[in-house]
Design a protein around this nucleic acid. Structure first.
Length: 951
RNA sequence: GCCCGGGUGGCGGAACUGGCAGACGCGGGGGGCUUAAACCCCCCUUCUCCUUCGGGAGAGUGUGGGUUCAAAUCCCACCCCGGGCACCA
């Protein structure tokens, strides 16, 4: 190529040279190594010299085989810019990056390629490290961890043991060591569940009681069985339409014996402590909704079992509207409710069992389709409504779910649309208990009446009660539900027929997976099948080597298949002889592995103290980096100062990690109550994908847009859709291509400039050139393109330029601090555009400009800083501060409006008082013409901003 | 249905606490450099209309109302888009 590009122009080639050189320099000099104050990585003097601590954290990546595309590092660049900025404003910043490398995709990728997941995972991590390093991210490499490393998961297993050896004391409202529970049982200070004295129980009975209190426990419960994946999965991993979020296979509810974690014990604290967190309302709302706390009452209805006509039992229902109890005209049980068989009379037995079978065969998806016609069958029995003694029929129906409340409801058809529809379908009575307002009747075009036969739907809302009284309670005339609820709750308690209660949607966390690539449980079972944890000195329990790592999967629709853990096949590993304190005995190892979320529940803690052999994190180290900061806020919960990641973890990782953190806090291992004090959700990089007429993706890079807005590949038109980037969509753009074409600094700048960090934005390769041109102009203001010589001059800058500089500094500082890098960049471009118009670039402008750009484009600024005559990295230079006297002008131009429209401008002294402003405006020719000799009706003066003359 | 966001030029997006809408970048147009092109540089670029070519007028931030001297910004009603939850009693 005949190329007359000037030899020292800032091109991709020069950028490449600069970037690789500085990346090596940083590594050689340990530039980004962050000292602790204590422990193995301690250098207290340096830590103090750097200033106040600041922990900046990214959600660590799962290292996939496909490598990074340009969408992945958006958040990583954002945290890097922020962390670099904070280093320059007096902070000891901890920033590193680890890998969340256990889990399904690694295993699937390994199965596809026939390589062991340990091998592919290592390769992928190596590739990720290379791609991330090439971006110039200022990470402390010494602190990088992988969840798959035995020296890491040793401590994941240790934390599991902590959770296993803990119980939740509801009186103290915190977790405590299980030994303290046992002591309470032994001393009699706490009664056993069935009241028998502890001393009379066998060792096995005692173990069962203790196991039932543990925060990690094995139970037989309905779980999500996914035959297509060959494993059970957590509620949080099931999509709304009843499929696995990994692989999109059907998921079936089955009773199985599995490990659970008692996250429900923390439901209230997980909600309440959201108040302490600087997170977006959206994420907080998602967590609150997921936990799903609702206040209401349990109400007991008595029933007579068919086979024991002389006895009564009670069915408890949960309701959020106890005040509507007078309107409960029938009861509906979930088909799986344990009392259904006992309440079914012989003549209804066949229809009931048939309905139960049909309900069981239905997938959750179909069952939850609320548009479906209501179905159900009568059991033949009646229950007594405690508030009015009415005998109400007991039905079963699949719109009542066993998994929520008590699996039974009182149906109030006049006030609940589902009950209303059910009553209409089966011709059940609909007594009115509220008199809806006239407008309600008008909107339905019917006469006001309590005769619900004319009502088209249930009435939901506040309205005076009617027909709601018994001998001891009268609601009639009361107008608000809060009052009604309080009165009925009092009545229920006085008559032992119910009690206020709280229900949650949150279920305990299903914690075991029947896969290979995960943390083994540090658990063995004795001859009686009771679990024992392995003592700390036996950790880690290493994942056994095997060629046969593929899980057994099944036909995705084969609901009645059973999971087979890969570890189960390894007899040599499963059967062990150990001395756990009772002499050498034979045990069987637990053959489950932990879910992918386990490793990410505490990784930020390991970053703090990655080489600690004695503890998962040193106490003082944790306190330094994560301790509550009362000087900022008395109720500061502690935790990471700035966490950045995608919104997709709102109820998975972020909920699980908070739960583990709180357990560790309760047990005295941590000083922080919460792991992540401040959370920022970055947006996503979206990309256009194109499909041809066969609905097959075509290479997005080859598609062009015509003038009339249609998209063409060669001579065929294709359709466009927006979504995440991906190889399968043929629209992936690799950062490697961007490095080759523009360099890492340009890529960083482009990603930060396209919009606010929390907004998703489309990727447009053709737009990248704008930031490349900017860096070229920047380079050209300081370096001669032909000679390569520095052309910065030591002459003072003119007054106007200095003013522009200080205004820029003022804005850039504020914008960087608030993570608004897009506007900071715009300001810096304006400054540089100003400088390009000067005859020469003064050093007093060049140096602060380089420093301000350093967090964004670290390589080219290091190079310029060096050429400006400095020996050391600019990483720890002080970020420029604005001179306040430069931020105010002597005179300012103020717009003058006439009747709210800008018609002219006047130049006035900056400190002009309102009267002077008004006088100046009225003297202006345009204003005088508008007034035409008259006087204005009104003049509004906003000093320094605006004058509005109303004519 | 409920809960969160959001809607501004051809495109990505700016706009402090209600005070000059469209910063910055892309794209587009014009010009320079060049034998030519690419690269690079300079100027113009919300729309419509008028113009004596200096400029001027009107409209304009999803729609319709309202508050105000003044609304992208506040209030009411509605439409559309994205995300989350959902037969949750």
């Amino acid at each position: 190529m005949a190329d007359d590009t000037p030899p020292f122009r800032y091109t991709a080639t020069l950028a490449d040279d600069i970037e690789l050189r500085w990346q090596d320099w940083w590594d050689e000099h340990g530039t980004f190594e962050t000292p602790n104050e204590t422990g193995p990585l301690a250098d207290a003097d340096t830590a103090d010299a750097r200033g106040e601590k600041l922990f900046v954290l990214d959600m660590f990546p799962y290292p996939s085989g496909a490598g990074l595309h340009v969408g992945h590092p958006l958040g990583y660049i954002g945290t890097d810019v922020y962390a670099r900025f904070k280093r320059m404003t007096g902070h000891n910043v901890l920033h590193t990056m680890g890998f969340d490398a256990f889990g399904l995709p690694a295993e699937q990728y390994a199965v596809e390629t026939g390589q062991h997941p340990a091998v592919t995972t290592d390769q992928n991590i190596t590739n990720y490290r290379r791609q991330l390093r090439r971006l110039g991210l200022a990470h402390d490499q010494r602190r990088s961890v992988s969840t798959t490393d035995p020296s890491y998961y040793r401590w994941t297993q240790w934390i599991f043991n902590q959770i296993f050896n803990a119980w939740y004391d509801t009186d103290a409202d915190c977790a405590r060591p299980i030994d303290e529970l046992i002591s309470e049982f032994e001393s009699g200070g706490r009664p056993t569940p069935n009241g028998q004295p502890w001393s009379e129980l066998s060792a096995g009975e005692r173990a069962d009681i203790v196991n039932d209190h543990r925060l990690a426990y094995v139970s037989e419960a309905p779980v999500n069985w996914c035959p297509g994946l060959g494993t059970v999965v957590a509620n949080e991993e099931v999509t709304a339409d009843g499929r696995s979020d990994r692989g999109n296979f059907p998921v079936f509810k089955r009773n199985m014996r599995q490990w659970m974690m008692r996250i429900t014990a923390y439901a209230d604290r997980l909600i309440d402590d959201l108040e302490l967190l600087d997170w977006s309302d959206a994420i907080k709302a998602m967590q609150r909704n997921w936990i799903g706390k609702s206040f209401g009452a349990d109400v007991d209805f008595s029933v007579t079992p068919v086979d024991q006509p002389d006895t009564t039992e009670s069915i408890t229902v949960f309701t959020t509207r106890p005040d509507t109890l007078f309107g409960a005209s029938f009861m509906v049980l979930s088909p799986e409710h344990p009392l259904v068989m006992g309440l079914t009379t012989p003549e209804h037995a066949s229809t009931v069992s048939e309905y139960q079978r049909a309900a069981a065969a239905k997938k959750d998806v179909d069952r939850q389709d609320e548009t479906r016609q209501k179905t159900g069958v009568f059991t033949g029995s009646y229950a007594t409504n405690p508030i009015n003694g009415d005998q109400i029929p007991v039905w079963i129906a699949d719109y009542v779910l066993m998994g929520y409340g008590s699996g039974a409801i009182m149906a109030v058809p006049c006030g609940d649309q589902r009950d209303f529809e059910f009553a209409r379908t089966f011709d059940l009575p609909i007594p009115a208990i509220q008199m809806p307002p006239d407008e309600w009747f008008q909107s339905h075009d019917i006469e006001p009446t309590v005769d619900t036969a004319t009502w088209p739907e249930a009435f939901v809302g506040d309205a005076p009660y009617v027909q709601s009284a018994n001998n001891t309670l009268a609601l009639d005339g009361i107008g608000t539900k809060d009052e009604g609820i309080a009165l009925v709750n009092t009545w229920l308690e006085a008559h032992h027929a119910g009690r206020p209660t709280i229900t949650y949607k949150l279920r305990d966390w299903l914690f075991s997976r029947q896969r290979y690539w995960g943390e083994p449980f540090p658990i063995v079972y004795d001859a009686d099948g009771r679990p024992h944890t392995l003592p700390d000195e036996m950790l880690p329990v290493e994942l056994p080597e095997t060629d046969s790592f593929a899980p057994r999967t099944f036909d995705p629709d084969d609901e009645f298949s059973n999971p087979e853990s890969p570890l189960d096949r390894l007899d040599w590993w499963v059967d062990v002889e150990l001395d756990l304190g009772d002499g050498v005995q034979r045990y069987r190892r637990d053959t489950n592995v932990m879910p992918q979320w386990a490793g990410s529940c505490w990784y930020e803690l390991r970053y703090l103290d990655p080489t600690n052999e004695n503890r998962f994190v040193g106490r003082e180290v944790e306190e330094y980096w994560m301790g509550p900061q009362a000087e900022h806020r008395p109720d500061h919960p502690g935790g990471v100062d700035q966490y950045v990641g995608g919104v997709e973890h709102a109820v998975l990782h972020l909920l699980y990690a908070r739960f583990w953190h709180k357990v560790l806090y309760d047990l005295g291992h941590l000083s922080s109550k919460e792991p992540y004090a401040r959370l920022f959700n970055q947006g996503y990089v979206l990309a256009a994908a194109y499909k041809d007429e066969r609905q097959i993706y075509v290479d997005a890079a080859a598609v062009s847009e015509t003038d009339d807005g249609t998209f063409m590949l060669d001579d065929k038109s294709v359709t466009r859709e927006w979504g995440s980037m991906g190889k399968s969509k043929k629209n992936s753009v690799s950062p490697d291509d961007m490095y080759a074409e523009y360099g890492a600094d340009t890529l960083r700048l482009y990603e930060m400039a396209t919009g606010p960090l929390d907004a998703s934005r489309p990727w447009e390769t053709r737009d990248v050139v704008g930031m490349y041109r900017f860096l070229q102009r920047l380079w050209r203001t300081m370096i001669d393109e032909d000679s390569g010589e520095l052309i910065v001059v030591d002459d003072p800058a003119d007054d106007d330029t200095v003013t522009v500089l200080h205004r820029t500094i003022e804005v850039v500082r504020a914008e960087m601090n608030a993570l608004r890098f897009n506007t900071a960049i715009a300001k810096l471009i304006e400054l540089n555009n100003h400088v390009t118009k000067l005859d020469a670039t003064p050093r007093e402008i060049a140096e602060p400009m380089v420093l301000m750009l350093a967090p964004l484009v670290p390589h080219v600024t290091e190079e310029l800083w060096r050429r400006l005559g400095h020996d050391d990295t600019l990483t720890y230079e002080t970020f420029p501060k604005a001179d306040a006297s430069r931020l105010v002008d002597d005179t300012i131009e103020v717009p003058v409006q006439i009747n709210g429209k800008v018609r002219t401008r006047v130049v006035v002294p900056a400190d002009a008082d309102p009267a002077a402003l008004e006088a100046t405006a009225l003297a202006d020719a345009v204003v005088a013409a508008a007034l035409d000799g008259g006087t204005p009706k009104k003049v509004i003066v906003v000093p320094g901003r605006m004058i509005n003359v109303v004519v």
